[in-house]
Design a protein around this nucleic acid. Structure first.
Lengths: 344, 344
DNA sequence: CGCTAACATGTTAGCGATAACATAATATCA
DNA sequence: TGATATTATGTTATCGCTAACATGTTAGCG
């Protein structure tokens, strides 16, 4: 295989071949400026013939904008984050932006600065921070955020004053699940939470506790077990919960994967779902409709979450372009309860 | 919120503040060149103080390389493609590359040119084509590929002469599944395939047919039903298959999601798995270990697939840099059989 | 017919960095 | 001690494009 040493076709080559200035070629490529029909035709022909593809890089450099968004993700191997990324990608594409990705797994705060710098070095016009809030992994924000010269939007983050964010309304989702179980006549509702370092897990658990208390029922710590989102951890948590809360008649599980384990372990032990134990999950992964029994769950639209994030950050970019002020907002996306066999 | 109108700190600002030339600053930033200890200190201090972050854009322009890979993905909302992307991202990060993403769902070949151009316009050093081969969606390759001036590697594509590719060995995976079932004494093995426009689905089906024939057994068209990878389609396919092949004693299902439906539908109809019907899936999604019964499946390492792709494309880039020739190769990654309850 | 407005094109400068070359000071060695 | 190598720094010319300004040409109007 012979390596092609063909040089890149530049605007100069086109200009020369068409017998015009580079500026004229630039005008043809970017429309909306005075070029005679005649010249336009001629230039377009040359462009076609030489296969000219303008360097977005050079353009970004002079225009000081790249039509590129930076996306910081984490846990991409899980379905949730990749759904979100998909939403961001779709909307960005629709709005004429590309995505520059930075995966940031198990990160300590020291790697954050690096990640941001590497995005900014490439002139991204805005940043979508799609790594979830875990422990204090967003603490860098206080001292670093206002030194970032482009708009940033955060996903799945606890609302903060002066910061743009979008998240599923985890509290509402949890409350819906519990109210549904209450509506089905259940009174002893346990909870298998996600890892409580996660903001989202805390919110779902808080919804469980507060909704039960509002209804005048018990929500003690022994009625709850903590998992780490994985099916394996769900099994363990369920086993512990069965011991600490033996007469429980329903369980709200913080995600579908752990709920799957609950269904299986219940089947194994001859605990009948839903008659003896009602189960409600969270997420609505595609498989959950095909669990046995099918799983009642809280649907969160992560695709939409991503789309909204991209939309908002682009609006922020445009506002800044036009020197309009923007006002930080924390947006919530409402989840929906999907009732299936496991709860009734 | 007042918008910061602070200008970007450039190499010139640093040079001026430190009382040296921009070239010297450049030398300090890039190491490995003669700079006195004294000057280096001074410049580094200024860099720190002003918060200078060199423009990768400007550097890319003059160096004609961006340390960025283009990734073309498809179906990111599914777990498979995002696992692969995760692999690419991890390895790219490790090798000092960033990722410029282009999502290409339901694409016709006309959008392909656009996608490639938009990546090339941003000077990507290489391209990872992670959109699977479906129908003739790779036909553009013949006439376009050698006009792409950077290395390209294709994932999950039928091997082609003169083209770099990496894929799971789907045929081997299928063969493993069938041989395992034969080893368990099954003789009437049905198949639920993926959509046969997909190369991967075709390979798995071919493995089913040929392995059975090698063993002197039947593999007729009525023993097979086609799904579209989704759990819903799996259910339908299984129902059809039960009619066209009523005395089947095992079924090889082309992915785990469809296999999940098979397990559920079997349970519903009182068909006992594995005693009456053995089931083997493909993929090893995390949930499959927690199906009831747990699912025997063929594990394909998509993370590794992505990593290998990134690794190879970077090697190609380096080879080209040093004007070494490269020789196209089609690489296969071996899957592994994971035996669980559903087959024995 | 002269004056302005709209159209059409070209020229120059510069985005922010590095390559390539030039220069000067110091160190090393025959 | 002069020649050569090493170290340290600066100058100039791009990379490929567009902004900003300049200049000409044609059309429209009172």
């Amino acid at each position: 295989m012979i390596s092609d040493k063909k040089k890149r076709v530049t605007i100069k080559d086109v200009a020369q071949a068409a017998g015009v200035s580079t500026q004229t070629v630039s005008r043809v490529m970017n429309k909306f400026s005075y070029v005679s029909e005649d010249t336009r035709k001629r230039v377009e022909e040359v462009v076609e013939r030489l296969g000219y593809n303008p360097s977005a890089l050079a353009r970004s450099l002079i225009q000081r904008r790249s039509y590129t968004l930076g996306v910081v993700t984490s846990g991409l191997k899980h379905i949730g984050p990749s759904r979100t990324l998909n939403g961001v990608a779709d909307k960005a594409d629709e709005l004429g932006y590309m995505l520059l990705m930075k995966e940031l797994d198990n990160f300590d705060n020291s790697r954050v600065g690096e990640a941001i710098d590497s995005l900014l070095a490439r002139q991204v016009d805005g940043i979508v921070w799609a790594a979830p809030e875990i422990g204090d992994n967003h603490s860098w924000l206080d001292e670093r955020l206002d030194r970032i010269p482009v708009p940033v939007i955060f996903l799945s983050m606890r609302p903060r004053k002066g910061v743009f964010s979008v998240a599923t309304d985890n509290y509402q989702g949890g409350a819906m699940a519990i109210r549904h179980l209450l509506g089905c006549g259940r009174k002893k509702i346990g909870h298998i939470s996600g890892p409580l370092a996660w903001w989202e897990a805390v919110e779902r658990k808080r919804a469980w506790r507060e909704t039960l208390i509002e209804a005048g029922l018990d929500a003690r710590e022994e009625h709850c077990a903590e998992g780490n989102w994985s099916a394996a951890s769900g099994e363990q948590a369920f086993i512990r919960l069965l011991e600490s809360y033996p007469d429980m008649d329903a369980v709200f599980v913080a995600n579908d994967q752990m709920a799957l384990s609950v269904l299986r372990e219940a089947a194994r032990r001859g605990v009948s779902v839903p008659s003896q134990l009602a189960v409600v999950g969270f997420d609505n992964i595609p498989e959950s409709a095909y669990f046995h029994p099918s799983l009642t769950t809280v649907f969160q639209d992560l695709q939409l979450l991503g789309e909204q994030a991209a939309q908002i950050v682009v609006e922020m970019i445009q506002a800044r372009q036009q020197e309009q002020p923007t006002f930080a907002q924390s947006k919530f996306i409402q989840p929906a309860l999907i009732i299936r066999e496991s709860s009734q």
